Every structure is written in C-alpha cells, then in structure tokens.
Computed example of a mutant assay.
Amino acid sequence: MSSITIVLADQYFKKDPQSSDLGRKIVNDGLTMLDELGFEEFTFKKLAESIDSTEASIYRYFKNKHKFLVYLSTYYWSWLEYVIEFETHHIEATSEKLDRVIDIICHSYELPKVLDLPGLSISKLRRVIDNESEKTYLNRQVDEINRKGLFMGYKELCGKISSIIQELKPDYQYPKALVSTIMEASHQQTFFAHHLPSLTELAVNSNRVLEEQSAEFIKHTVKSILEK
C-alpha cells in the first residue's frame, strides 16, 4: 500500500475529489477516459455515463474539463516533486543527483512500489501529461489561471531542479530556462517519437526503451550546456 498522500489546495477543485468514493472514481475513471479519448473528445457527459452518474455530480467537483486537466497535472507535478526528494536526499554528488532527477522525470528509473500513487495509474497519468499538459497553459486564459496560483506545483518543481543546476554551476545564467526546457523536452520528445517521428531521433521501435533514450538525450543536452 502506498504511503503517499498528495494534498492539493482548494483552488484546483470545487469539492475535494479525494474526500469521497464518487470523487475518487471521477478522478480515476476520468484519467482513463482522457488517456483513451484525448482532451478534445473527453466530456463530463461521457464520463458521467461511464461511471453511471450525472454531469451535475461531476460539476460539483470540477468547474470544467480544463480545471480537471489542471488538477491531474498538478497532482502529477506534486507527486514528481515528492519522488525527487525521496530519491535524491541521500545523494551527495550534485552531478549524480541531477542525473537521477533526469531519470525520474523521463521515467527511465524504476521506482520502488512505496512511491506508487493510491488509486491512480502512473503510466496513464504520464501519457496524459505527455499528450495533454500543454493545454493547461497554451490558451488565452493563461494569465488569469496563473494569478490564481494554478501553476504553482509545476513552478515549485522547476524551482527545485533549478537549485540543483545552480549548485552544480553557480555562474550559469539560465537555470530556470534550462529546467523548463528539459521538462518540456521530456514530454515533447516522447510525443514526437509516437506521433511525429521525423522531428526526433528517439524511436519507438528501437532496441532501447523510449524513456531511456529520452533521459540520455536530456543528459547529453544538459552536460553540453553546463560544461561550456
């Protein structure tokens, strides 16, 4: 049984979905449906039919499907930050710590079962992040969403990784830009390999798993930049 409890602030929902069986079912089944259908085809009406409930019951928890996607994304970023802290707090060498972080964000590192998320599939959540997370901020409401603090989980995670970059090379000018770039690359390159393979050397049908290829590419990029 996982010992992890992720607690999100109330700006991410109208009613905490972790507070009831129905709420948890909405999150779990909604994640599965998002993974299968994609954000554009996903609707609360379809989810309500799938869980034998009503749209009104889902709207009691989430204002709309965009807020639901933001909730899932933040849940993922908060979990990832916890995993990074758990897996790196004992590593003294900064370069080794950064390598472990890259392995974790690329999912090329096998995590112990104690870090599983209760009631949620990490593999499904990762695919939704790869395919859909950019839609949380690539919209005209991004400034308003940011003012409400809905990107705080992602910003805190990037800040934690940026501090490792600064520790490794204090005079490097762009630690935040580098971290946000590699975070996006960890998802985009995987997406490209699956759907737009001419945009990347990473390959789904390789002898090496895609996550390992992604981690190797990002480590190469970071090392090339920081060793200049």
Rank of each mutant, 00 (worst) to 15 (best):
residue 119 G to D: 05
residue 158 C to E: 07
residue 186 S to G: 15
residue 27 V to W: 01
residue 145 I to N: 01
residue 133 S to G: 01
residue 14 K to R: 15
residue 117 L to G: 02
residue 149 G to V: 06
residue 183 M to C: 13
residue 30 G to K: 07
residue 52 D to R: 06
residue 102 I to W: 00
residue 120 L to F: 06
residue 223 K to F: 09
residue 119 G to S: 06
residue 192 F to P: 00
residue 216 E to C: 08
residue 116 D to V: 05
residue 201 E to W: 10
residue 196 L to C: 08
residue 153 G to W: 01
residue 34 L to N: 03
residue 26 I to L: 09
residue 215 A to R: 02
residue 23 G to I: 05
residue 74 T to G: 13
residue 188 Q to C: 07
residue 144 E to G: 09
residue 111 L to T: 05
residue 66 H to I: 10
residue 17 P to A: 08
residue 15 K to W: 01
residue 62 F to T: 06
residue 96 E to I: 12
residue 11 Q to C: 13
residue 79 W to Y: 14
residue 181 T to K: 01
residue 142 V to Y: 09
residue 108 S to N: 12
residue 140 R to F: 14
residue 68 F to W: 04
residue 61 Y to M: 11
residue 22 L to Q: 05
residue 100 R to M: 14
residue 58 I to Q: 02
residue 213 Q to Y: 11
residue 91 I to W: 02
residue 21 D to F: 11
residue 144 E to W: 04
residue 87 E to N: 11
residue 88 T to W: 12
residue 221 T to K: 06
residue 140 R to P: 07
residue 73 S to Y: 11
residue 72 L to Q: 05
residue 176 K to G: 02
residue 14 K to L: 15
residue 212 E to Q: 11
residue 47 L to M: 08
residue 37 L to F: 07
residue 18 Q to G: 14
residue 206 S to V: 06
residue 132 E to H: 04
residue 22 L to F: 08
residue 56 A to R: 13
residue 33 M to F: 02
residue 18 Q to E: 14
residue 137 Y to R: 07
residue 55 E to S: 15
residue 116 D to K: 15
residue 87 E to H: 05
residue 72 L to C: 08
residue 117 L to T: 03
residue 220 H to V: 10
